[in-house]
Amino acid sequence: MAIFGLWIINKAGGLVYQKNFADGLSKLSPNEYLVLAGTLHGIHAITSRLSPAGSSSGVQIIEAESFKMNIFLTATGTKFVLLTSLTDTTADTALQRIYEAYADYVMKNPFHTPEMPIRTERFDVKVAEIIKVFA
């Protein structure tokens, strides 16, 4: 099992946090990450309206040939995306812990502006600790 990366996408579809943890995924430019985050945001919005059973929270897992994207949508519309190996089974728990760290270290930071890029060192350290436990 491997965790390759983490993206946090704000409710408008902007990438506010991106971190790679392991080799395995293609190296992309910052602009390419922004485009991918916006595209994923659009796909998520479309899938949340396609449900034949009524309301849906949208796509939660996207599987590719060599990795999968696990998407956790918060009540405020922020999306946490964890890029993992196909065999990973701990992504949901890891995403929940990352969300808790986000609430503790980012949202409670009086110097952080909501919906803007996350530049909080304590959050980076906590995410690294969480990834180390689950990788």
Rank of each mutant, 00 (worst) to 15 (best):
A2G: 01
F4I: 07
L6C: 00
W7H: 00
N10E: 08
K11E: 05
K11D: 01
A12I: 07
G13N: 10
L15T: 10
Q18L: 12
K19Q: 15
F21S: 03
F21C: 12
L25G: 06
L25M: 13
S26E: 03
K27H: 05
P30Y: 10
N31C: 06
Y33A: 01
G38L: 13
G38N: 13
G38H: 08
H41S: 07
G42A: 11
H44W: 07
A45F: 08
I46A: 15
I46L: 14
S48T: 12
S51P: 09
S51E: 08
A53F: 11
A53W: 05
S56V: 08
S57Q: 10
S57W: 04
G58H: 15
G58D: 03
Q60D: 03
I61A: 01
I62W: 12
N70V: 05
I71T: 02
F72L: 13
A75M: 10
A75Q: 10
L82K: 00
S85H: 12
D88T: 08
D88L: 10
D92E: 12
Q96E: 06
Q96G: 00
Y99K: 11
E100R: 09
Y102L: 14
Y102K: 03
A103L: 11
V106Y: 06
P110E: 03
H112W: 15
T113R: 14
P114M: 02
E115M: 12
E115P: 01
M116H: 14
M116V: 09
P117I: 14
P117C: 11
P117A: 05
I118L: 12
R119L: 10
T120S: 08
F123I: 08
F123W: 13
D124W: 04
V125R: 01
A128H: 09
E129V: 14
I130Q: 00
I130A: 06
I130G: 02
I130E: 09
K132T: 14
A135L: 01
